[in-house]
Design a protein around this nucleic acid. Sequence first.
DNA 1: AACGCAATAT
DNA 2: CATATTGCGT
Length: 325
Amino acid sequence: MIEEDASWFSKWEEQLPSPDDLMPISQSLITPDLALAFDIKPQTFPSPSQNHHGPGHGHLRRDVQVPPIRVPSLNNGIFPLYSHNSSEFPDSSDLGGSGTPRSGPSDEPARTLKRPRLVWTPQLHKRFVDAVAHLGIKNAVPKTIMQLMSVDGLTRENVASHLQKYRLYLKRMQGLSSSGGKGALGINGGGMVVDPTTDHLFATGPVPPHFLPFASVTPMHQHPETGGVEAVVHSQMQMQMQVQMNNCRQVGGGHFGSDAAANGQYENRQRRHFLGREAQQPAPHHSIGGLRIGGIQHFVEDLEPADGNGDGNRKILTLFPTGDD
DNA sequence: AACGCAATAT
DNA sequence: CATATTGCGT
């Protein structure tokens, strides 16, 4: 059943593009709360990664003063977030002890405001999957994954939640290597309680093999300096994303990728890989500036007002590609 | 503290 | 429905 993961990995390695393609991509999943909290100043993102040279030969100096993550679109960049909710409790009681891990003395709604639901788009999910595949089962824990993904605004909880489902998905997949695949949901004669949850998203992309049984961090380019987990991978294409606040509409309706995985066997198509950027250390400084790494990455934010959608106004923060993946 | 998982909430 | 949140054991 499981036996050709090795080849998958090999191919992957072989296909590593030349260093010219090296390009840390970091996305910014805008964090409304944070954005507002720090009043974000035009900072030329620090980009600690020593990424250099652009695609060509000259060093394009990206002195771009990328405008803050502010939303140039609507709302003045102010997310309506949840309309109301008097849950603004702990303001007077200045927590005498532990409390705010983030931000300092500058009060923040960030702590009390809810953030919009994250929408796991296929692209975002891919990033997740790549990170997981890359780390190997042992290291693929929420925190690490989150760091590798380096998506601004992504929280450990987001990842943990997703990971939980992803695991169920994988488990289920392995269980049913020969049965129906994605059609025989409900009863697989096993006794396994099939969760109607998890599936579509996970099947939208080339699901990695059945998960690498091999452990350890992949021995790829490690940074000699840090020697950390900051894997330097390559990205041939970058994601251009759009942050959007919706009511409750899923982009693309759900599936459009290949559900090769559902078959039990993945297709051995060419695997392009993403790039894991430097982990987001306990950033003492708000680096939520816009990132426009390398070239053409810029974010377009869009907000859609919630009008009677039969749902009241449930808002989601979704990132979706404006290009291709 | 961070994790994993089931149950539950939204 | 897809995510988030919570509770509890590790």
